[in-house]
Each structure stands twice: as structure tokens, then as C-alpha cells.
Simulated assay, not measured.
Amino acid sequence: MYVAVKGGETAIARSWDLLAAARRGDESVPELTLAQIRQQMRLAVARVMQEGSLYDEELAALALKQAAGDSMEAIFLLRAFRTTLPRFASSLPLDTAAMRVRRRVSGTFKDVPGGQILGPTADYTQRLLDFSLAEPSVPAQPARAAAPLPDALPCVLEVLDREGLIEADLPPAGDPDPVDLTREPLMFPAGRPARLQNLARGDEGWLLGLAYSTQRGYAESHPFAGEIRMGEVSVFVCPEELGFEIDIGEITLTECQMINQFGGSKRAPPQFTRGYGLSFGEAERKAMAMALVDRSLRAEELGEAAHAPAQQAEFALCHSDNVEASGFVQHLKLPHYVDFQAELSLIRALRAQNPQEPTHD
């Protein structure tokens, strides 16, 4: 990441003042509070937490405010702050099957155990501007479900699992602890745990583009949305000094399991295979794109031809980090006088050696 900036101290200090003034805008307009951003821009807050690798709605809201709504800048701010935090424990694996569901849909079965739960979604709106939102609204009574939802809902894919029609979703014997990409660099070949970590904090736009490419024929993929669920999951840790698990709170997650066809191999019969996506907050598009790319990156593991960009791990993973990508692009704004003068001298020397009359069409 390119962050070094050199220049006149006075000019830089003045640019900070201008940035603060531009961020605040017209002072006759009430200033945004962090509570407003958290409550009313929850999807933007969720994205900053996902790609910033830190679940903290207050800090994500602060980063969005400081970045004046620039999600990539906010992600960079949160990611940088994350590196200053001490790590005092590692959580136990999350049990998403025990999720307190607020939304759960399946594109593969009409009738699923527990029913389809639409929850808060824009999927069924007409995408027309609602001009009533231009004015302050009268507080409304919170919407209530027709009937209380159960504490947990069974996973939709259990229907296929019971018949042995989908690959098992269990860790293999002797499965080692996954690599921690926040502490160790991404290395190739990368195992699936490392790939999923990378995708979980990858840029949503990049993953969406790759996922779309797989659906357009660049990975021979024909996926079905087996289950998409969103809700709250408890986080447990087991401190060494206590020796038992304790619940330290809940986080909101979105989980997606995609189903793909698989013709079978010498080791496995024809069956469905899975693509998996998991994101902080309400983030269906990100979770779905992640699941599609996860499945495409399993091509070699499943004995499939890997010829499309979304099936090439180095291409897909090395370009997914928007903090690194943004820095590498934006560093072009910084002075490159010496480099350019060298290039300019070379071009002039080449032209002097091979003088040509200019041509005109």
C-alpha cells in the first residue's frame, strides 16, 4: 500500500483544513451523528465492517463520516485502525445453524422447513424513487411478524444431505487450524480456508464482476441459491484461564450456500457441490458473489477444467483487496517527476535516432 506523501508542510496542513470543511459542508444543515449513520445507513456500515475486517458498527460509522461517504476510504481507515488493536482471544467456530434468523429464502425449494422468511429486503420493490423520503417521516410502529419466529431454523440443504445428493459439509479428519491472513501473507497454492478469508474481506464490486462472469459462461457454472439467511449469531470464546466456553455477544451475519452440478469423478458419485459465502451484517449480494467465486475456485479440486479468470486463484484473490488496489492506483497522483523524465529522455533519444516525417490522415 502506497501511503508515503512528501510535500510542503504548509500546503498539506491547508489541504487538511479544506478537507474538513468539505466534509462538514453547509453548517446551517444539521451534522450527521454516528447513531444516524448506524441506524439509517446500515448496509454501508456493513460493507465497511466486512472489507475492513473489523466488526464494530460505531467505528464503521465513524470511518464513513470521516471519509465523507467514500466506502473505500472508510474501509482503509478501519483496516488501519484494526492493526493497532491487541488480540486477546480467538473465537470458536460460529454455529450459523443456530442463527436467530430475520430473513431466510431459498431459490431451490418452494416449501422449506420453517418456511420462506422474506424479512427486510428491497427485492420486491419497484425501484422507483420514493419522494416521501425527502421529508421527515412520522415515527411508525415497528413491523411485527405474523407469528413469532423459532429460535433456530434448520438448514435447507439438509433436505439434499439426507439423500446423499450433495457433498458432505464436514471438516476432514485432522483438519488443521486455518491460516490467519491478517497475520500471514497469502501464499499459493491457497487452500479453501485461506481463499474464503480472502474473499470475505474482498471488494464487493470485484467479486460481483467475477461472479457474473461465471454465470455468463466463463466457468461453466449453473448455480442455484440453496439458502440465503441473515440474522444474529452468538460468538463464543474459551479463555485458557477459565477452561470453559463463554458467550461474549452476538453479531449479525449473512450466509449463502450455492448449489452447483457436479458430474462425479473416480472418487465421488454425481452429486451437487457447494459454494459458500459469509459476510458481516446484511450483505446478500456480497455473500452470494462470494459463494459463486468460492465454487469456481474449486475447479481443480473437483477435477474440472480451470480456464476462466474466476477459476484462477492468483488472479481472483490477488486483485480482490480494494485497500491495496486503491493504493496502487492512487499512488499515481503522487510525484513521479524523475521516472517520467527518464522515460521522456528515452523517447527523445529514440526519435533522434530514427527521424520520421509526421504523417497525417
Rank of each mutant, 00 (worst) to 15 (best):
L32R: 15
L346S: 12
P154H: 08
D17T: 11
T10C: 06
D130N: 15
L94H: 01
F188Y: 14
E304T: 02
G191L: 11
G107V: 04
Q116R: 03
L196Q: 12
A146C: 05
Q257F: 11
L128A: 11
L77D: 01
G25V: 08
A352W: 00
A313G: 02
A342I: 08
M99I: 02
A11P: 00
R348E: 10
Q215D: 07
R38W: 02
R79K: 13
S137I: 04
S234E: 13
S320P: 01
L165V: 03
P30G: 09
A325Y: 03
N322I: 08
A349F: 03
A22D: 12
S28F: 09
L210R: 06
V235Y: 01
N322S: 12
I228E: 03
R24A: 15
K6I: 09
F280K: 01
N354G: 04
R24E: 14
Q330A: 09
A60L: 10
L129W: 10
K266V: 07
Q330S: 06
E227G: 02
E163K: 06
F88N: 06
L43K: 13
A22K: 14
R127S: 14
R144M: 11
T214C: 07
G231P: 01
E227C: 08
E31R: 13
A268G: 00
M1Q: 10
L62R: 14
R298C: 10
T359W: 11
D95F: 01
F244Q: 06
A306V: 02
E282V: 07
R285M: 05
R127F: 15
S71A: 15
A287D: 05
Y212L: 14
R274E: 01
S213C: 07
S326G: 06
E9K: 14
V112Q: 01
A22F: 13
L208F: 11
L92G: 01
D180E: 11
S137P: 01
P239V: 03
V237Y: 05
D95L: 07
S106E: 11
T83M: 10
D151H: 03
T182F: 08
Y218M: 14
L64Y: 06
I246R: 09
H360A: 12
A134G: 12
M290C: 04
H360P: 00
F328Q: 13
I75H: 01
L54K: 04
A268R: 12
Q341K: 09
A310K: 03
T359Q: 15
A61T: 03
P178F: 09
T83H: 10
E301S: 09
G281Q: 04
P269D: 08
G174R: 03
A200V: 01
P93E: 04
A63K: 03
F236Y: 13
T182R: 14
G7M: 02
G205I: 03
L19R: 12
L210P: 08
A122G: 05
V323I: 08
A35L: 12
L18I: 13
L165E: 10
L344K: 11
